[in-house]
Design a protein around this nucleic acid. Sequence first.
DNA 1: CCTTACCTTTACGTTAACGTAAACTATTGA
DNA 2: TCAATAGTTTACGTTAACGTAAAGGTAAGG
Lengths: 126, 126
Amino acid sequence: MADYSISQLAKEFQVTTRTIRHYEDLGLLAPARRGQTRVYSPADRTRLRLILRGKRLGLSLDDSREIIDMYEPGKTNVDQLKKLIDAIQAQRIKLNQQLDDIGNLLKDLNQAEAGCIDALKSNGKS
Amino acid sequence: MADYSISQLAKEFQVTTRTIRHYEDLGLLAPARRGQTRVYSPADRTRLRLILRGKRLGLSLDDSREIIDMYEPGKTNVDQLKKLIDAIQAQRIKLNQQLDDIGNLLKDLNQAEAGCIDALKSNGKS
DNA sequence: CCTTACCTTTACGTTAACGTAAACTATTGA
DNA sequence: TCAATAGTTTACGTTAACGTAAAGGTAAGG
């Protein structure tokens, strides 16, 4: 029901099939097989989406795997849960730092753009 | 007046001197010299801050150089200015995408954390 | 004078995240 | 039947961003 081939996913997410297989090599994906051919479920597709989102945020693939694994229900050991909460905290700190950085960068870009536009206007009047 | 040595900057920004020299190799920094020794001005220090901020946002060093160069007043050619405005637009789009991603990731992390805490509570009651 | 602490350049090494090529299999439409 | 299309594994190549080691210059303190 609504499965995907590797090239379908590659096309949808604008990556190469090599990239998707690479994520599997690193243990981030584990699609089913029909014979030798990979078959991706909607859940696999979601994992890929999360991986790529992590990439856009500058996370390593290992980081992404850790985070994605947090969403799964295989973690019942108490110590592991505590460790996960710590990891989540750490991630949040890093992300809030990124939010700050982006805010500042956007401000800088606005200023730079304003400067450019002013320069263009003055130049146009000459 | 208020200049810095390479190791002072390295300590302040928690990077190695090798890293700072590397940025110079790539043309992101151009400190003065006293004899053979590098001397960093406050402006150089600011550039380094901007480079590292870019890094936290996942920009390549080349990207950072382009952005940082936008802030400088050496760009008077009209075509260059228009090109810069376009580059700023592109950056803004990418950054807004990152903002979106971070918002979603934070939401996910909150959920995952809540799940962990609940699991810990149930576990504690047993 | 000698060690310690910084500074320098040069250059090879390393890791992550794929790219790319080779060689092969399976399905499908003309 | 045969060529094109999409899949597979294996394995070496590549780029960015430094790490690390070698070999040496310089200034201060004991």
